[in-house]
């Protein structure tokens, strides 16, 4: 047996190690680390933030780009497109959280963690951190791909940083939706089904891939009020990739940055309690 100084003799004579209370941060990081090892062992998990968005960039930039002229040129469209794809990629952070959480609940990993002397939130915090890192890899890959197809940041450095910060903030709000969905669904397949049938329409019915001006009135209203549109518009403005907002566009598009902030705070305030309740209900039953 180990004669480590951190062990003590119990009444029955076996050396038992001292269990030091650790903080939420250390516990969450241990779980984050484990989630990152998963990515290392199964790099194909990153396809959703690498190959898929890169494919979208190329498809939209070169297949549709020719017929959607922005600033009068396909190059203009390619530059304009980047904010849209980044917005879509970060919206899928919810998906990443949900899939990971459902898998862990399903396999009993969450129960195993809950049987340990740790803060029960560590499972969620660890999952959130690793998912945000996961999505950030996507944002990074997008940025590099963008540079190759002619995308440039034309605003100031501070504005560029603010744009990335808005994307991350949005990812943070998405985490709660992910926890809610992940706690409510019984299998990874169910999460996939739900997320594909909701997230794709939501992220397409916006200004992500095509300007809203030419949409039929009914769709245009939905698209312009879609929070994804505010985020995308804000990011484009901050990077200097935007088009002038038509005077008749819906209110959020005229104030995209503040609207995005309001949405992230609002979504978090509404979704976080629901998510935490759903998680508790699912795991404590």
């Amino acid at each position: 047996m180990t004669t480590d100084t951190t062990t003590r003799q119990s009444a029955s004579g076996i050396a038992r190690p001292e269990i030091k209370p650790t903080g939420l941060l250390r516990q969450s990081l241990a779980i984050t680390r484990r989630n990152l090892i998963h990515i290392k062992r199964m790099p194909e998990m990153l396809m959703d933030v690498t190959i898929q968005p890169v494919m979208f960039v190329l498809l939209f930039a070169y297949v549709f780009g020719g017929s959607i002229a922005v600033k009068g040129s396909p190059a203009g469209y390619r530059e304009w497109l980047m904010g849209g794809i980044m917005g879509q990629t970060i919206a899928f952070a919810s998906f990443i959280v949900a899939v990971g959480l459902t898998a862990d609940i399903d396999k009993g990993i969450v129960d195993r963690m809950r049987s340990l002397p740790i803060n029960p939130s560590a499972v969620l915090v660890g999952r959130s951190i690793s998912s945000l890192l996961h999505s950030s890899i996507g944002i990074l890959v997008m940025s590099v791909t963008g540079l190759f197809v002619g995308w440039r940041i034309r605003g100031s450095f501070a504005e560029a940083v603010l744009a990335y910060a808005l994307l991350l903030l949005w990812g943070f709000a998405m985490i709660w939706i992910g926890i809610l969905v992940g706690s409510a669904m019984r299998s990874v397949e169910a999460v996939n089904g739900l997320m594909f049938t909701t997230m794709f329409p939501i992220t397409f019915l916006a200004n992500t891939f095509a300007p809203t001006d030419n949409m039929p009135h009914f769709l245009r209203v939905i698209a312009e009020w879609n929070p994804i549109s505010s985020l995308v518009q804000a990011v484009r403005q901050l990077w200097g990739n935007d088009l002038p907002v038509p005077a008749d566009a819906a209110l959020p598009l005229h104030h995209p940055i503040i609207t995005t902030l309001i949405w992230t705070v609002g979504l978090t305030l509404v979704m976080a309690p629901l998510a935490i309740r759903a998680f508790a209900k699912r795991t404590e039953g």
Partner: peptide, 22 residues
């Protein structure tokens, strides 16, 4: 409820560090 994508040793390490063991 061991983690399939971790090695045996990594599983022990994960739970050990969550316990707060050195």
């Amino acid at each position: 409820t061991v983690d399939e994508l971790l090695t045996g040793r990594e599983n022990l390490r994960l739970i050990g560090s969550l316990y707060g063991l050195s």
